[in-house]
């Protein structure tokens, strides 16, 4: 009895179309964000995150329409990340029906933006996305604990900023939630970086979403039990029809994690 840990499928959207090949056997249009979001809602997704990977800013308006369409038919929380750089970007997404926005690069280049956004729209809709990579994998050990630094521009650009300190700072600036992605694990299917997840989750007072590395269902529960995450985000294991959200939730429940079934 109590608050459920959340499972959040994440969809990459390019020019209004879902990419990275979502594969449902009986879906008419595998690129239609509305159809896919509806499917995840039916399967019991607790929230849905859209990552706008549209390269050209001219096509940003497309994402607004996607959110409008989805929000008219799917009644669970929606988060939109990717290319959120101004107060006006946030306002447009929230007015279109998004509940939260993810801020990543813009927070690093200007932390005050997070403060301004939280003051204007409330912390509850400001998710700070952190892409972290271990920087002392070779040398760490007994005397030297693992350390992670944050990277921007899709994990390509190092910043030299410590990930745990950064998470704490972002909460102080008004982030209502942290979306934490391990760049080391992303795409590897070897599970979350549990040490990183736990280090950040223990350091901040707001909920933490673990991301990056899920390859099997047991990884999801580990993110909560060992990583102490409040929510887990995954993309490919759901998109390729390997597992349904419902199967994922049953596996989490079997591992003793409270979920919404």
């Amino acid at each position: 009895m109590g608050l459920a840990k959340r499972i959040i499928p994440c969809l990459d959207v390019d020019n209004g179309r879902v990419v990275k090949g979502v594969q449902f056997v009986d879906i008419r249009d595998a690129g239609d964000p509305v159809e896919i979001a509806k499917r995840y809602d039916l399967e019991g997704a607790d929230e849905i995150t859209f990552l706008d990977i549209t390269a050209s800013s001219d096509n940003r308006e497309t994402m607004v329409h996607v959110v409008e369409e989805v929000a008219g038919q799917v009644f669970i929380p929606l988060t939109v990340g990717g290319g959120i750089r101004t107060v006006d970007d946030i306002r447009r997404m929230l007015n279109a029906g998004a509940d939260k926005v993810g801020i990543n690069t813009a927070a690093v280049s200007n932390p005050e933006f997070v403060r301004e956004a939280a003051e204007k729209f409330g912390s509850q809709c400001i998710v700070v996305a952190i892409d972290a990579k271990c920087v002392n994998e070779e040398t760490c050990g007994k005397d030297e604990p693992r350390r992670w630094e944050i990277f921007t521009h899709g994990g390509r650009k190092p910043t030299g900023i410590d990930a745990v300190e950064w998470a704490k700072k972002m909460v102080k600036y008004g982030a209502g939630e942290i979306l934490l992605t391990s760049m080391d694990r992303d795409g590897t299917k070897t599970g979350f970086d549990l040490e990183l997840t736990r280090a950040v989750s223990d350091a901040v007072t707001v909920p933490v979403i673990a991301s990056g590395g899920v390859g099997e269902l047991k990884h999801l529960a580990e993110g909560v039990t060992e990583g102490r995450a409040d929510a887990v985000l995954a993309a490919s294991i759901f998109h390729f029809g390997e597992y349904t959200i419902e199967e994922a939730k049953r596996a989490m429940a079997a591992a003793g994690v409270e979920v919404r079934l």
Partner: peptide, 12 residues
């Protein structure tokens, strides 16, 4: 255990 604030998510 410490509980996160905001109280965010699905509760009974």
């Amino acid at each position: 255990e410490h509980l996160k604030v905001p109280h965010m998510g699905w509760n009974q």
